[in-house]
Simulated scan of single mutants.
Amino acid sequence: MKAWTTACIFSTGWPTILIPSGKTFLLSPLTFEGPCLYASVHVRVEGNIVAPDKLWTSQNNTSWITFRDVTAFTVDGNGEIDGRGSVWWDCKKKNKCDSVPSALGILRCVDLTIAGMKLLNSPGKHLTVDSSKWVHLKGLSFASPADSPDTDGIYIVESHYVEVKDAAIGAGNSLNQDGKLDW
């Protein structure tokens, strides 16, 4: 959070937060809040980010990693974001969890790009874009096991001008217990 706060008030250039390659970081639920004062922020994910391997709560209870009210930013790289969703899937299958969070949430953001990363094993939806505009999603891949419940790749709601390009989505099973499509 210190890196985000510093980047968000940076007065010149294009500040970059780097998640370095060859390393894995355990990240508790977190919200990156805007608006940033002067500059566009760049988050470069070269390494891996993993969620806690247990049920957890977050500020908003809808996403593990949230970007909220941020304008003109980029999240890219060839790293992986692993939501470690199996504990959530078990909870959902046993009807002990009413709601299951997304791995990555974008809320009320404008002019953003998310590119090149792999999102794995989300507790619920892999990426949620809500109440945002001018969103560019490029070269992303989403993967979770076939028996993972409600792990949609991308969920877009109340947003405008959203571009999805070159996405590979292999996220969960859309069949219910009766073998029928779950809409």
Rank of each mutant, 00 (worst) to 15 (best):
H160R: 06
H126S: 12
A146C: 02
M117N: 05
E163P: 08
G116T: 02
L120S: 10
S141M: 06
L137A: 02
A115I: 10
G124M: 00
P123S: 13
S132I: 09
S144F: 04
C109W: 00
L137T: 02
D166Q: 11
D130H: 15
T128A: 10
W134L: 09
K138M: 13
Y161E: 11
K138G: 14
D111Y: 06
F142Q: 09
M117I: 14
D147R: 02
Y161S: 12
D130S: 15
L112C: 14
D166C: 08
S144K: 01
S122F: 00
D150C: 02
S141Q: 07
F142Y: 10
N121M: 09
S144W: 01
T128L: 07
A146P: 08
E163I: 15
S148V: 04
N121Q: 12
P145D: 04
V135L: 08
A168T: 13
S122D: 08
S148W: 02
N121P: 03
L112M: 14
T151V: 06
E163C: 15
A143F: 02
I156R: 09
H126Q: 15
V110N: 11
P149H: 00
G124C: 02
K118A: 07
Y155C: 11
P149V: 00
W134F: 10
V157T: 15
W134P: 00
H126D: 11
D150I: 00
G139P: 08
T113F: 01
K133C: 13
V110H: 06
M117L: 15
G153W: 01
